[in-house]
């Protein structure tokens, strides 16, 4: 974090699903090198915020800039218009995404999952792509699993493959949407340690998570959301030790009671 250059900036972000307002004026700057955890109760809008950063959910108001370019919408004299799929892919290119339910492609081997984009989108020849792919799998401790099918892996292994798949195309920032929420408790650690290693390398990371321990120790910033708004944000230690808002202290209290 030597420099404080902006990776992703969010201004006045609004999102409605039908009548329900899910994001109600979010402002947030994510800097290069940040490891930012978004916490909050279910339905607080944290996953929608994360998905909006990549325009997987189309926001209704405000804007998101990814490395200087607005994602999803184009301003025209007639108002906002959706970007073409090609343009959107181009703005998205520096973003990697890891999903709660992995979303590996079950009909391909692990190595094909990791190298498909390199080969199809980036035009890398197969042997070279597989070299990169194996290096990525090695990074997540799964080099020996290259030729397996995803269905033969544990949840933790699947998620690590999903991380390797996202890393293979060299993203500048990684988005994690509850990456450990679908895992058996004993498998959470292996995924978190891969993420910690990634953070230590300086990767810019935005993580929606329920893992307070991870937020406390791996993040340099924490954002607490409730009711579609950012209620509190700051460095994790002071925030967890002395929450300013009533809602955050309630949230942390509930979590501590559950942890006992």
């Amino acid at each position: 974090m030597a420099t404080r250059t902006t990776a992703i900036s969010v201004r006045g972000l609004e999102k409605r699903f039908g009548e329900k307002t899910v994001l109600n004026g979010i402002d947030l700057d994510i800097h290069n090198g940040d490891v930012l955890c978004i916490i909050g109760p279910s339905g607080s809008g944290k996953s929608t915020l994360l998905r909006s950063l990549a325009f997987l959910d189309a926001y209704d108001g405000g804007d998101v800039h990814v490395f200087g370019r607005m994602i999803g919408w184009r301003e025209t004299p007639l108002g906002r218009q959706r970007m073409s799929a090609k343009e959107l892919a181009d703005v998205r290119r520096p973003l990697g995404m890891v999903f709660q339910h992995f979303h590996l492609w079950p009909h391909m081997s692990v190595i094909d999952n990791v190298t498909l984009s390199l080969r199809l989108v980036h035009g890398v020849p197969r042997t070279e792509a597989e070299e990169t792919g194996r290096a990525m799998l090695d990074k997540v401790g799964l080099a020996a699993f290259a030729d397996r099918r995803p269905d033969s892996l544990s949840g933790g292994q699947k998620q690590r493959v999903a991380i390797a798949r996202a890393l293979a195309v060299k993203p500048k920032a990684m988005l994690f949407d509850e990456p450990t929420s679908a895992l058996d408790p004993e498998l959470v650690g292996e995924v978190l340690s891969v993420m910690k290693a990634l953070a230590a390398e300086g990767m810019t990371m935005v993580i929606v998570t329920h893992e307070m321990g991870f937020a406390a120790h791996a993040a340099n910033r924490v954002v607490f959301m409730d009711g579609g708004k950012i209620v509190e944000e700051g460095a994790p230690q002071p925030m967890f030790a002395a929450p300013k808002s009533e809602r955050l202290s309630q949230f942390l209290q509930t979590w501590r009671e559950r942890a006992l």
Partner: peptide, 11 residues
């Protein structure tokens, strides 16, 4: 979600 993953990877 598998299509979203593909979208995110630029397919």
């Amino acid at each position: 979600g598998e299509i979203e993953a593909a979208d995110m990877l630029g397919l």
